[in-house]
Amino acid sequence: MRDITYAQAINEAMSEEMRLDKNLIFIGEDIGVYGGAFGVSKGMFEEFGPERVKDTPISEQVITGCAAGASMTGLKTIAEMMFSDFMTLAMDQLANQAAKNRFQFGGQGAVPMVLRAPGGSGTGAAEQHSQSLEAWVAHVPGLKVVIPSTPADAKGLLKASIRDNNPVVFLEQKLLYRQKGPVAEIGEDEIIPLGKADVKREGKDVTIITYGRMVPRSLKVAEDLAKEGIDVEVVDIRTLVPLDKEALIKSAKKTGKVLVVHEACQTGGFGGELVSVVVESDAFFYLDAPVKRLGGLDVPIPYNPNLEAQVVPTEEKITAAIKNLL
């Protein structure tokens, strides 16, 4: 084990898989010589060459459509989108083509592609480069949706996503790219299967169900509250689709109090789905307080850095929400 960044972990996952599978290619804007807008693909152009690490025009529809087409016809593809906000431009290729192919051909079609796209606010990138749009893609049957919160999860989940025979939308967290964490040595093949949640912190008083950037934030709150004698369990769902319902239900039954936290706008957010999973299950009979959702405010992400910091769940808001449950 050594500590590397979230970005390096993603780079390692892609590079290791490309070494293993000569049919795996990587396309996107500025991923070649430039090394990617966030430097994620540094060194890959040099190692794998222009045939397998391919720069594309500035067209998200082209990137996604090429990836889907190449994957339908025998290659495996990793496509990078510079900002997940531009999934808007690629939605037809993603939702109507990539997601449907297997079903249209009676299960015989396969679209082994991963669409990597960074999301989230906090970098001063304003309303068109800061959104968290996971609920849009989670709503499309046929797409798997992954949001890792640590370098180790990023590496293990990306490898599993690349090996999956279905289109996977792999939503990275811009603000986590520089976060370091322990990751298995190169070549140790630490695969994390999709559909397995991870209890990042055990606790008995209240459960936070969350994912992505809100995981480290929730863990920080949990450590602070531990000093006050409040024992918070933090469950990182890691993959929205497929969702590890059992893990949520188990934790809800254990603590009887549930807070769902995500950065995305609260209305129509994936948190509503998570709440439903809990209250529809037999965990209902263990609930000792109304299940609470804490999402982002229903506004575009502001450019003003003070406002930007306040429209998403902050440590203070998470703390207050937990205390209100107890």
Partner: peptide, 12 residues
């Protein structure tokens, strides 16, 4: 009404 206000866990 005629029900005690209680959480599902309390009822169980």
């Amino acid at each position: 009404g005629d029900r005690v206000k209680a959480t599902p866990a309390a009822r169980r």
